[in-house]
Nucleic acid binder design. Sequence first.
DNA 1: ACACGAAGTGTTATATTATTACATTTCGGC
DNA 2: GCCGAAATGTAATAATATAACACTTCGTGT
Lengths: 167, 167
Amino acid sequence: MDKSEADEPVLAAFPAKAHDHGHCVAEALQAAEAVCAERGQRLTDLRRQVLALVWNRHEPVRAYDLLEQLRDEKRNAAPPTVYRALDFLLDNGLIHRIESLNAYVGCGAPHNAHAGQFLICRDCSAVAELDDPEIARSVTTRARELGFRVQRQTIEVMGLCPDCGPD
Amino acid sequence: MDKSEADEPVLAAFPAKAHDHGHCVAEALQAAEAVCAERGQRLTDLRRQVLALVWNRHEPVRAYDLLEQLRDEKRNAAPPTVYRALDFLLDNGLIHRIESLNAYVGCGAPHNAHAGQFLICRDCSAVAELDDPEIARSVTTRARELGFRVQRQTIEVMGLCPDCGPD
DNA sequence: ACACGAAGTGTTATATTATTACATTTCGGC
DNA sequence: GCCGAAATGTAATAATATAACACTTCGTGT
């Protein structure tokens, strides 16, 4: 694992149009195995399947889309099936929830706890995940000035990614 | 109107425990009238009623809570009744939607278009609305470095307000 | 004043997202 | 192998939001 990853503000950049996506998925699953092993958490078949489905695209995926896909392999899957797996993955920082879309994306740096900041393309739905300390600090600093104790930052930025929004 | 308001990072601070809340509502309605008049938009009775209900507390309010309250005065109110009013109020910047709560709060500075940043207390649900240029700039700057064109920032911070989270 | 078209609202139905409650199965430690 | 805890199956329902179409109201132009 890249030890410097925690210091980089960009945890998951916009993917190149054609990249070895199988590699992304494989790497994510491997990282998830490692994280769960470390913590004594059980990455069951079901949870692994759902995580793989989330990672199938570099886009936010909705719970009922996951459910539909999951049913291909598991005919009796129901909403709680998916939501329980998502809850587990969220709790363990393996995925993030995009509040403004009611959707979920794979986490690019599951080893380090972080809330993250997300850049989401309106056109192609691609997502980049950041963990920029300066952004986080600017929020925390102002909040503290107002006597507010920050527990969690939700930062979601809609706009156009490099491919979709030429300058 | 206070001309300096657009330059202040805090658009709506946490309210004092006991304040003249009737004044908040009255002021919000008056500001809404002014904004709509300026833009040739119609602040109908229904929209005014919904806006008043949103302003009844300095907390995010959910659509179906509004609906229930609205039915006291308007027995035939249905979901679209509320959602259409909310859409109008959102479009005109008279309220904001808190994505992480599926809820709505009154806007403290409806004259100036802004996405805002929100500090939300986990304990008492009070909300402070900011429009801090430094926070916005830290986001925009990093995004631009990545070739991302920002259209809208959603920034919602959960934590403890001064009353609920003593240092 | 009146007719017209656009905007707003009423009404019913339904789509989408998420949770509750309880039964059953699986897993890991002993 | 047995036990308790964790995970999953299953049915029902809650919570949030929108679609579609009918009807009413409003402002404008004449």
